[in-house]
């Protein structure tokens, strides 16, 4: 009975979505369709958990999670500040800035670039998260060790993207700069950095999602009694599952907001790139 109702609801929502999607590629449609899809999922979740009597220990309903979220905003905010603002964000800034500086250095010294690029490509594919226990041992339980894990994680993906970006301008454009008598720094600033921006933003997007992962994982290995990773692991231990889901919601919101901000900046900076124009 419950399943039949769920199926019927799903079919109705899907039919409506298909209708809207078929109508047009208007801006409203573009927003409406995914939002309706998301709402459908949430309603189904709520309905199925209630209808089938799933224990709250396995999966709480979205409404219960929302209630918990509203009731513990103070706690969630403190965790957010500790993990996202102190740990992830500072590590993200340090790591991407260091990668940027290294990339410029590698760009000036071709020998270094030849050597660094294959190494960087390989290291970027490694599970650097595993460094977390070591770095927590070195830098202590505070947010500094989380920032260190984030730096280690974002450095190489960012580096290879910036190096690739600095090679993105073509021969003709560089020759033109040379005929105008531009110095290395002028050519870098006026031509090659702007040309590298799509790659830089690609790297920043990858780094943004890695940063949150790093900051949260590092907290599983030791943290002060605040932070999202700490809260999740202790709340799972006492089966306070609603709080865990509320933290997951915070992580999801923070991750999406972080990514969204970078995407917005990308739109403003690389407005000239074909992928942004349509």
């Amino acid at each position: 009975m419950v399943l039949a109702l769920a199926l019927a609801f799903w079919a109705a929502a899907w039919a409506l979505n298909a209708r809207v999607a078929a109508f047009g590629r208007t801006r409203a449609g573009r927003i409406f369709v995914p939002v309706l899809f998301g709402i459908t999922l949430l309603v189904l979740w709520e309905g199925l958990v209630r209808g089938l009597g799933v224990s709250a220990v396995i999966l709480p309903t979205p409404s219960a999670i929302a209630a918990k979220f509203a009731a513990s905003t103070g706690l969630l905010w403190a965790d957010f500040v500790q993990t996202v603002l102190k740990g992830a964000l500072s590590g993200f800034v340090i790591g991407t800035a260091a990668a940027f500086a290294t990339a410029i250095l590698a760009d000036r010294v071709p020998f270094l670039r030849e050597g660094l690029l294959p190494v960087g490509n390989f290291v970027a594919a490694l599970p650097i998260v595993g460094m977390a226990p070591i770095l927590v041992m070195w830098f202590g339980f505070g947010w500094q060790s989380k920032a260190a894990v984030v730096v280690a994680m974002v450095f190489f993906p960012m580096l290879i993207n910036v190096v690739a970006g600095l090679a993105a301008s073509d021969r003709m454009q560089r020759d033109l700069m040379a005929t105008w008598g531009a110095s290395y720094w002028q050519a870098l600033w006026k031509l090659r950095l702007p040309a590298a921006m799509p790659f830089v933003f690609n790297g920043l997007k990858i780094a943004a999602s890695l940063a949150l992962i790093g900051a949260i994982v590092a907290e599983y290995f030791g943290s002060p009694v605040v932070g999202m990773g700490f809260r999740i692991s202790t709340a799972v231990g006492v089966l306070n599952i609603e709080l865990v889901w509320a933290e997951i919601a915070v992580a999801a919101l923070a991750g999406s907001a972080f990514y969204g901000l970078i995407a917005l900046a990308e739109k403003a900076v690389t407005f000239w790139h074909p992928s942004q124009r349509n």
């Binding site: 979505n17 999607a21 995914p34 999602s209 599983y220 990773g229 999740i232 992580a251 999801a252």
Partner: peptide, 19 residues
């Protein structure tokens, strides 16, 4: 395309380790 693709992108901004 219109309904799943945006959510696939959002799914990757959620730190999996939290889950």
């Amino acid at each position: 395309d219109m309904s799943v693709m945006p959510w696939a992108i959002i799914s990757q901004t959620v730190p999996i380790v939290a889950i």
